[in-house]
Design a protein around this nucleic acid. Structure first.
Lengths: 206, 206
DNA sequence: GGACAACGGTATCAAAAGATACAGAGGTGA
DNA sequence: TCACCTCTGTATCTTTTGATACCGTTGTCC
């Protein structure tokens, strides 16, 4: 088991790591636990140490996946909301067992000015979230669903290092913003092309 | 003609306005002038005082509109690039005559820590750009093109306060990421429904 | 006036994706 | 074992959107 101090050394400034240890509180979440709900004030900013959190918005029955917060990342939606003391406009749910360091909201503006590490970290996070979103946007706009499905699958395999993806067609449809029937159709086609094998609740890439 | 000082008083901190006046340089652009090109290093951060700049990305023949930088706003893409001394991944072009205050890139991390006004401004800008993009994303994903066209038109009318919109079908198609024929079809339909009148190069809302 | 380019109208065809419906397979718990 | 729920396969039909092609109009520049 790594110590907290070790887990934080992706921040280069020692003084800043000290501050994180002093003000941060370690929290452990079980898969499915809710981190934030829409409408709640954001009093603590989470930094993920291990595991991952799914952040999404809900508008009139529709769900929009914004991003996953993974190890060493933070949630920019929470950050912005906390900074201005606004309510959250998103939901966050742990998709697996997750360790968080939570930071009191009032530290944000202080550290923002005090620590270069933090400042760079924040700008970097905003930037990469924005880039991610542009990317999804572009795919949504220009790529056909079969391509997006295939990309999702290969991407997941490289991420997890496992050629077996445990997901139902329904969930996958949800991730890509379409319907189950469409996904089943496409997956079946991919199976015919020998690119994968289907089984109940799982997809095996070839 | 407003003085520069007056134009900057959307920043509340007087000391910060002083810094802006000291380090910033006023630049005037003509419609069509290029502000940044993809691949260029970003040495100056623009803050728009009047007019507007269109920021977009170009990927394999496709164009993605990111946002317009309008009065009192800055370009978050430039900000992030400048902060990390990266090349720009976007293009920026003045869509009308535009006044800019340009700030040397090295001021950004300094002011970030020195002035609360600036700090809040930056976070606020990141947040609203992100929200905008989520919004477009959502519309792109769930709304049909006719609805998006109509929304674009009414939105533009309220923005400009003018019921006449000077835009060609081709341009409009471009804005919404579709083709001219589709737009012509839809506009004709809206005209039949008496919601607007068409003329060459312009659309008159009823 | 004539050449030319941008703009707009419309028809036809094809592809992509969504909606709906129904059936069967697998797993679980009483 | 039976009831029940989730997951998957598949067929049919419709809607939406894109692609292409062709033509007339308008405005501009020599």
């Amino acid at each position: 088991m790594d110590t907290l101090h070790q887990k934080l050394n992706f921040f280069s400034e020692p003084a800043f790591r000290e501050a994180l240890m002093e003000y941060g509180k370690l929290v452990t979440l079980k898969k499915g636990d809710v981190v934030v709900k829409e409408g709640q004030y954001v009093k603590f900013l989470p930094i993920v140490l291990s595991g991952s959190i799914r952040v999404y918005q809900q508008k009139e029955e529709r769900e929009i996946l914004l991003y996953y917060v993974r190890a060493q990342e933070t949630c920019t939606m929470s950050l912005a909301a906390a900074y201005f003391n606004n309510k959250s406009s998103s939901h966050g749910i742990a998709v697996e067992d997750t360790e968080l360091l939570i930071i009191p909201a009032d530290r944000i503006p202080v550290w923002q000015r005090e620590f270069l590490s933090w400042n760079r970290y924040v700008v970097q996070m905003f930037r990469s979230r924005y880039d991610e979103l542009i990317n999804s946007f572009q795919k949504m706009a220009f790529d056909h669903i079969p391509d997006r499905v295939w990309e999702y699958l290969t991407h997941t395999v490289t991420q997890t290092g496992n050629r077996v993806i445990a997901i139902s067609h329904q969930q996958l449809a949800h991730e890509l913003g379409t319907t189950r029937v469409v996904i089943s159709r496409i997956l079946k086609q991919l199976e015919k092309e020998k690119k994968l094998r289907l089984s109940r609740g799982a997809i095996h890439l070839s």
